[in-house]
């Protein structure tokens, strides 16, 4: 978040009048500017070559996979990041033995079943870190793709199961409803799902790692 936006957020919604300001005393942040949009599946119809289309579809879906809303909790190390600037999580939290944090400071110590906007704390019924086998941080889209398809690294899911997970898992869906102050993942969950479905239908090809 830019300094300027942060400051605006800090002051609440401000309307400048002549020499005066109207200020609602909100401590929250302004509505996130809305992430980028996702191109609809139909817009890829012009790519004749199936493999090329598959790759293009995955590239588009990759806007979501590489978004801070997703990468922050798919870290390569033990510690998640937070915020649009993907800074190390404060306080220091780690995945612990099951992705739910360390003894004494589990994810659920702060993160409830839903976003709690007055405290600016996001939430979900199973807020946790993706397992290290699903780390996306710092990885190329090709590597993420291969990882996504690899049953040994994706929780033993086939592509259909991945799609179901993406469309139904509340924590995945949270990325499009992250609460004020956090930019949502691009497009919508349905558009993202449609892209991945089309990608699967075209052979689920992966970009070069």
């Amino acid at each position: 978040m830019s300094r300027h936006r942060l400051a605006a957020a800090a002051a609440g919604a401000i309307i400048v009048l002549t020499g005066a300001t109207v200020q609602t005393f909100s401590q929250g942040t302004p509505p996130a500017g809305g992430g980028d949009e996702l191109r609809p599946v139909s817009s890829f119809a012009g790519i004749a070559d199936t493999q090329s289309r598959s790759l293009a579809l995955f590239q588009e879906a990759g806007k979501v996979l590489k978004h801070p809303r997703c990468v922050n909790c798919h870290p390569a190390g033990d510690r998640p990041a937070q915020g649009d600037r993907m800074q190390p999580h404060q306080p220091v939290v780690v995945r612990g033995k099951d992705g739910h944090g360390a003894p004494g400071l589990a994810c659920a110590t702060c993160h409830g079943r839903a976003n709690f906007d007055p405290a600016r704390v996001p939430g979900d019924p199973h807020w946790h870190l993706a397992p290290i086998s699903m780390a996306w941080e710092g990885k190329s889209l090709g590597s993420i793709c291969n990882q996504l398809k690899d049953p040994r690294r994706n929780g033993n899911r086939d592509v259909a199961a991945i799609l179901k997970h993406v469309l139904t898992d509340s924590l995945v869906r949270w990325a499009w409803d992250p609460g004020p102050g956090r930019t949502p993942a691009p497009g919508s969950n349905a558009e993202f799902g449609a892209l991945l479905q089309a990608w699967a239908d075209t052979g689920a090809h992966c970009p070069a790692p």
Partner: peptide, 13 residues
């Protein structure tokens, strides 16, 4: 029995 930050937890939950 598990620690919770009560300032960020709505009573309805």
């Amino acid at each position: 029995g598990k620690p919770l930050r009560s300032c960020a937890f709505p009573i309805a939950a």
